[in-house]
Amino acid sequence: MTKKPESFRGKAWVLTDSEGEPINDIDTDMIYHNAHLAETEVEKMGRYALGNLEGWEDFPQKVSAGDIVIAAKNFGCGSSRQHAVECFRALGVSCLVVESAGAIYRRNAINSGFPLLVAPGITKSGIETGDVIVVDIAKGVVNCPDKEIQFSAEPFSDVQMEIYRAGSLFDVKPG
């Protein structure tokens, strides 16, 4: 297997409301509505991403492969659906940077080897939608070279890194 990247460069999407405020508590129904749960093919999940989040319904049309999504607190709270992680992968989003995440959501991201970095305060860092940012998951840093922003996040935990490097949970044996 080719080595997975541990640093990403891409355009940021900061999930904000109509007043430009970062949205807390974006639940899995807003990320991936329960009407589409019967979908089992990851490639088809992308078209529903953020489909129930006010003002973001057209996200799947706007996003490009390699983009990075930034969200505020308690991202992915609610149900256990893995679709809510996979829909971003399907769109080619390279990683998620959130202030905090729902426990199950975070676990799903870790297990599927999808990079989710926890960075408390990131929505107040000055990084805005459209900025090009660089995220290093091993060191736990988020940079925005154009704005000279250097932001430190929580680096991946050992298990998270082990699973990420191996591919997914299915590639590691229980300890």
Binding site: S79, S80, R81, Q82, V85, N108, N111, P174, G175
Partner: peptide
């Protein structure tokens, strides 16, 4: 509560992290 990969893994091994 866990996602479907987690539960498939739990079915197979009876253990998880």
């Amino acid at each position: 509560g866990m996602g479907d990969s987690d539960i498939a893994y739990a079915f197979r091994y009876g253990r998880t992290w």
